[in-house]
Design a protein around this nucleic acid. Structure first.
Lengths: 73, 73
DNA sequence: ATAGTCTACGGACTATAGTCTACAAAGGGA
DNA sequence: TCCCTTTGTAGACTATAGTCCGTAGACTAT
């Protein structure tokens, strides 16, 4: 499975664990809601800056996020 | 310091530790040499796919790479 | 029914990631 | 001196990251 699809699954899992809507995460990470949707569906490849922006409100380190992706590769 | 500048420093450190030229790393990671140069100088924000492509020939996990960045933030 | 929340998705748009070619400059070694 | 390797950088280009507008469908609760 591609990196971006796995990225999307991990993002969605973590977001739902935190009981956040896409809209809320978008606001907290200062990204667009439709873009969060695209990411979760594996339609976009985020930059590392975007990864950091997402991880901040989710309360985990970017390295931990990538660790989750590596598990599934 | 910005994420991309730190990214560049970490990339250069690791590449030089491995005794690779930008040209060699570019070939191994299937990226352009001038782009490696831009990255090392903090002029570009790589996608996570690019990060994975760079880490593979450098022999370290993307999560480890980001861990180095987090240390300096 | 209907109002509210959440998400998928489309189109149009701007900014930038990433490629390619070419040239300049610095350094080391024969 | 003259190569040779390495890196910076510019310009032009294509692909895609990321925004912003709108609409529609699923679901829940009232």
């Amino acid at each position: 499975m591609s990196i971006e699809v796995i990225f999307g699954k991990v993002l969605r899992n973590i977001r739902e664990d935190k009981k956040l809507s896409q809209e809320q995460l978008a606001h907290l990470s200062e990204l667009d809601r439709t873009y969060i949707s695209l990411l979760e569906r594996g339609k976009r490849r985020p930059t590392i800056n975007t990864l950091f922006a997402l991880c901040k409100p989710l309360g985990l380190k970017p390295s931990e996020f990538l660790g989750e992706i590596e598990k599934e590769l």
